[in-house]
Simulated assay, not measured.
Amino acid sequence: MQTSFEINSGEELTERQKDVLNAVLLLLVEEGDRLTMTAVARRASCSKETLYKWFGDRDGLLTATVQWQASKVRVASVDRSRLDMPSLTENLERYASDWLHVISSDTSIALNRVAVAHAGSDKRDLGAIVLENGRLAMGRRLKPVLLAGREAGLLAFDDAEEAFRTFFGLVARDVQIRLLLGDRLKPTDAEIDRDAAEATRQFLALYGAQTGAASADL
């Protein structure tokens, strides 16, 4: 299961570093884009020197925070020789469920609100960071699973990006935009699992192969 996260040095995050990134997320909820390295150091009970050593500058810290948040969406390793419809379905449902849990959390809502605000101003750093290390990175992680499904004759599509965008839309629907606009939507674990299963069912209805042959290569 691909659940680990590595900082720029290639070393896996320590529990102490995870504590720091969780502190960043909490501060974003409380203070928005007023977050500073001093405030993070104070909240995480560490020195600014340590923050700079681990993450570089503020953008490096924000990048690591977005990547840490995105890493909570699990993508199982795929054994292409043994992939079948039940295992593919389970993989997609887990991914969708994790995704819905992440985007409906207070921390992700706060992070995305700040990112959207930056995208509409001269402060474009966080918007670009969230796009590259959130949505785009998650697509890069799931597309190999979709391609493996196509190679196994389980899925039929011509473009992996288009297939992923369809899955993204079926999973997210209007949930994220409603939350960003202040809807106090609080789905339960059972509701999230149900929605994840339904999104996967709809996706397979659209892209499930009707024959054993896969589509043309990208």
Rank of each mutant, 00 (worst) to 15 (best):
L147I: 15
R16E: 07
D84R: 13
A44E: 01
E198Q: 11
L180W: 09
S87A: 14
A23P: 03
E191S: 15
V29S: 00
D79T: 05
D57M: 02
E15H: 02
E11W: 04
T38Y: 14
F203H: 10
A76Y: 04
S9L: 03
R141A: 15
S105Q: 09
M85W: 04
G32K: 08
D79G: 05
T166W: 09
G153P: 08
A64G: 01
S121E: 13
A213K: 12
A214W: 05
L35T: 02
R80V: 15
I7R: 14
L136C: 05
D122P: 02
L181Y: 05
R80Q: 14
T65V: 01
L147D: 11
V73M: 11
F168Q: 10
F5Y: 06
M85G: 00
A156Y: 12
L83S: 05
A137D: 13
V175G: 04
T63R: 14
A70R: 07
L131H: 02
A214G: 08
R165P: 00
V114S: 09
D174F: 08
R82G: 02
W99T: 13
T65Y: 03
T38F: 11
D84S: 12
D19V: 03
R82C: 02
A44F: 04
Q2C: 00
M85H: 00
L92T: 02
Y52F: 12
L13G: 02
S45F: 05
S77C: 06
A156G: 01
D217G: 14
E49H: 03
P187L: 08
V171C: 11
A128I: 04
A199E: 12
G149C: 10
G182T: 10
E162G: 06
R184I: 04
K53C: 04
C46R: 07
A156V: 00
A205G: 12
G134F: 07
K53G: 04
E31F: 01
T3N: 09
A117M: 10
F168S: 10
E15T: 04
W99Y: 15
D122H: 11
V114N: 04
G10T: 11
L26C: 06
M1I: 07
L13K: 01
A190Y: 05
R184H: 14
L204D: 10
L35A: 01
K123H: 10
T166G: 07
